[in-house]
């Protein structure tokens, strides 16, 4: 096992994802502790997207036509080859679609210990200690890894590192011919009837609202406040709200002046999209729901009682 700290670079169309800069911030700190190098792994088809500006000591640049777009199979095999050759102490990936598709495969192929959903990583001597958010964010797990480690990291956990003039090293891709996955198309999200990222007031509904019919209570409150209705992933997956109104990791990141969370438990994927709101008021019957850890005010009263009561009082106040 070596002492280098690897980071998988996520990039699209020549732009490096913010999550990569956050990982490089932690990688620099860990590499200082291990006495190794911070090494950015850039898999690409010729663009070397943003390699020059990465805040790393070294960029391992792997070029191959199969790496033009994200193909899980190609990424896992290419990264596993780099890890086998260089034996880093730690590999950092984002807890994103790319990271989820790579981390477990890398662990299976290399035998390196994987800690998923990390939001903190430290070194205690030779032991890596990571904190993992499990059980929907209700519990943290403190996990020790004695050998080589892989950590998939929740967005926003670390301060980004910027600025750098890394030594860029070209590496021949290996093991990624004869793939059974083919890239067909990239589809951008449809234009929305409403841009929830531009709204000052969001009344946001989660599974706890109970059913599609109850969303009208949130809509009435949003109308009274001059805001719009948004929701969490289970609500859009169930078809109760359109996808364009989804807040969270796979939806929109929002920062309204007021965010009223109605029946939202506050899974890490949701908190990622709204915890920067200026004022968060949470209505949830579960007093232990993680949403109350980011909310400024909260209540465990029944959401279906509070919503109409609040709407009525606001309408009376503005009348």
């Amino acid at each position: 096992m070596g002492s280098d700290v690897f980071t998988l670079v996520e990039h699209v169309g020549g732009t490096v994802d913010d999550s990569t800069h956050e990982l490089l911030g932690k990688a620099r700190e860990l590499a200082t502790a291990t006495g190794g190098r911070s090494v950015a792994c850039l898999l690409h088809s010729g663009a070397r997207a943003g390699a020059d500006g990465l805040a790393a000591d070294v960029v391992l640049s792997v070029e191959h036509p199969a790496l033009e777009h994200f193909l899980p199979e190609a990424y896992v095999k290419a990264l596993a080859a780099l890890v086998a050759d260089h034996e880093p102490r730690v590999v950092l990936v984002a807890n994103s679609t790319v990271g989820m598709d790579v981390a477990g495969g890398l662990s299976a192929r290399t035998g390196n210990g994987l800690v998923a959903y990390c939001n903190a990583i430290t070194l205690e001597g030779d032991t890596l200690v990571a904190i993992s958010q499990v059980f929907g964010g209700k519990l943290n797990a403190e996990v020790a890894v004695e050998g080589p480690a892989i950590c998939s990291v929740v967005s926003g956990s670390f301060a980004p590192a910027t600025g750098g003039s890394p030594d860029i090293q070209d590496v021949t891709a290996s093991g990624i011919d004869n793939l059974t996955t083919t890239f067909l198309a990239r589809i951008e999200p449809e234009a929305s009837d409403v841009d929830i990222t531009a709204e000052d007031i969001l009344v946001s509904v989660g599974r706890g609202i109970g059913g599609a019919d109850n969303i009208e209570f949130a809509q009435e409150l949003a109308d009274a406040l001059g805001g719009v209705v948004s929701g969490s992933r289970p609500v859009t997956d169930a078809g109760w709200l359109s996808k364009t109104r989804q807040v969270g990791k796979s939806g929109q990141k929002v920062k309204p002046k007021l965010y009223i969370a109605c029946g939202i438990s506050g899974a890490p994927e949701h908190l990622e999209g709204m915890s920067d709101a200026e004022l968060i008021i949470a209505i949830n019957s579960d007093a232990n729901a993680p949403i109350f850890d980011v909310a400024h005010f909260g209540t465990t009263e029944d959401v279906l009682d509070v919503l109409p009561a609040l709407t009525e009082q606001i309408e009376a106040a503005v009348a």
């Binding site: 589809i187 999200p189 364009t244 990791k249 796979s250």
Partner: peptide, 10 residues
């Protein structure tokens, strides 16, 4: 992917 972008893979 994040933000609702979708890739189609065969």
């Amino acid at each position: 992917f994040g933000g609702g972008t979708v890739h189609e893979l065969a």
